[in-house]
Simulated scan of single mutants.
Amino acid sequence: MTLDISQAARHALATWLDHTRALKDRSDNTVTAYRADVMDFISFLTAHHAEPQGLAPLARVTTSDMRAWMAHLRGQDIAPRSMARKLSAVKTFYRWLAEREGFEPTAVLATRSPKFQKKLPRPLTEDAARAMIDTVELQTQDSWQGARDAAVTTLLYGCGLRISEALGLKGRDLPLTDSLRILGKGKKERLVPVLPIARRAVESYLTLCPYSMSPDEAVFRGARGGTLNGRHIAKVTERARMQLGLPATATPHAMRHSFATHLLQAGGDLRAIQELLGHASLSTTQSYTAVDQVHLMQVYEACHPKAG
């Protein structure tokens, strides 16, 4: 629902989004989500008060308004996690707007986020991760494409890269050395160690790849020479996990989860893992400690003589 929103409110929203994009280094996807969430909130206020919401009405938002909006979201069967995301976007916008316009945004900022159970990452076992890489390679008929898919998957598990980061590698990044400079989310740069097995996987692919590697072209190419699409890796991963009898959670992103979890289980430092993954907040990385605790409890219950 997008009703009549005052020109002043539209201008303020656009200015905030430009500010967020330029100064806060938010990704395009994040900015798009922010715009939709805040626009939906202003549209709700427009309908709730039966009049366009300019800057003055926005500054007068009450606790009652916020409760009505949250009730409206619940009535649309929006999940608590999504409600929390929308509220976070509105609060971020209001902090900026209040500072710019000189009003007190207490009613908005004091609104409590709905509680929800955080989903723990679902890593693969070490054996399953290795089997996934081997099986992914068998999902295409052309040997160079199989080598390519294995190389991408190896980078996800061996270096903890996001799929977008692996597919974003350019010819200028070659040949891979013992470290790789990655520009991740929010344009945050990090240095990632590259294991010999990952270098060998990429080298095997490059030996078979029929396309030249100029500095500005993607390393991982589709069948017709364009940049490989992440959906392809998702599809071959899905076929591989079905062959292996792995759960639906065995996705390309699960390989990155597995990288972090296995490092933690081997005694890796949480701060170091945060840097390797490119997480902006340590709290994001800390979710892996919960995964490790679940693993430890499973081992305890299976092996302790007094368990059960």
Rank of each mutant, 00 (worst) to 15 (best):
I78D: 06
T135C: 10
S88W: 04
T111L: 04
K119S: 14
R81A: 14
R95Q: 09
G75Y: 10
T106K: 15
S82E: 08
R95Y: 04
G102W: 12
L120C: 02
K118T: 11
R122E: 12
G75R: 11
Q76P: 01
A129S: 11
D127W: 04
Y94C: 09
I133K: 05
I78F: 08
D77W: 03
H72Q: 10
L87A: 03
K86N: 08
I133W: 06
T125P: 10
R130P: 05
E99P: 04
K119A: 15
W96L: 05
A79Y: 05
V136E: 03
W96K: 09
E126W: 07
L120H: 04
F116D: 03
R122T: 11
A131G: 14
V136F: 02
Y94T: 09
A107H: 06
F116Q: 02
I133N: 07
K115V: 06
S82D: 07
L87T: 01
Q117S: 15
Q139M: 14
P105Q: 04
L87E: 00
V90D: 00
P121K: 11
E99Y: 04
L97S: 10
R95F: 05
Q117Y: 03
M132Q: 01
D127R: 13
V108G: 03
D77E: 14
I133T: 01
T125D: 14
G75P: 06
K86L: 01
H72T: 10
A128S: 12
L124I: 01
P121S: 13
R85K: 08
F93H: 11
E137R: 15
A110C: 02
